[in-house]
Computed example of a mutant assay.
Amino acid sequence: MIVSCLIVLGVWEAAVWRKRWMAMGAAEVGFEGEVWRLVRQEELVGEIVIDEADFPWLHGRFAPGPAFVGVKPWFDESLALLDAEEYERFEDSYDQIARSLSLAGPSGVVSLVVV
Rank of each mutant, 00 (worst) to 15 (best):
M1S: 13
M1W: 08
V3A: 11
V3W: 06
C5M: 13
W12D: 13
W12I: 11
E13W: 03
A14M: 14
V16Y: 07
W17F: 12
R18Q: 06
R18I: 00
K19Y: 00
W21P: 00
W21M: 02
A23S: 10
A23G: 01
A23I: 00
M24N: 03
G25A: 01
G25N: 03
A26S: 10
A26F: 02
A27Y: 04
E28Y: 02
F31N: 09
F31G: 01
E32N: 09
E34P: 00
E34A: 03
E34C: 05
E34T: 05
W36F: 13
R37S: 02
R37D: 00
R40I: 00
E42L: 08
V45I: 14
E47Q: 13
E47G: 05
E47K: 14
I50C: 06
D51G: 06
D54E: 10
D54S: 06
P56S: 06
L58M: 14
G60S: 01
R61H: 07
F62D: 05
A63W: 02
P66A: 15
F68L: 04
G70C: 09
G70I: 01
V71S: 05
K72V: 06
P73W: 07
P73F: 08
W74H: 11
F75T: 12
E77K: 14
L79G: 08
L79K: 15
A80D: 14
L81H: 10
L81A: 08
L82V: 13
D83L: 15
A84N: 09
E85R: 14
E85H: 13
E88C: 02
R89H: 10
F90C: 11
F90A: 13
F90T: 12
E91P: 00
D92P: 01
S93H: 10
S93F: 08
S93E: 15
Y94F: 15
D95Y: 04
D95E: 15
Q96R: 15
I97R: 01
I97P: 02
A98K: 15
R99C: 10
S102H: 08
S102A: 13
L103N: 06
G105E: 09
G105K: 04
S107C: 05
S107G: 02
V109F: 02
V110Q: 03
V110E: 05
S111P: 01
L112M: 11
V113S: 11
V113G: 03
V114R: 05
V114A: 05
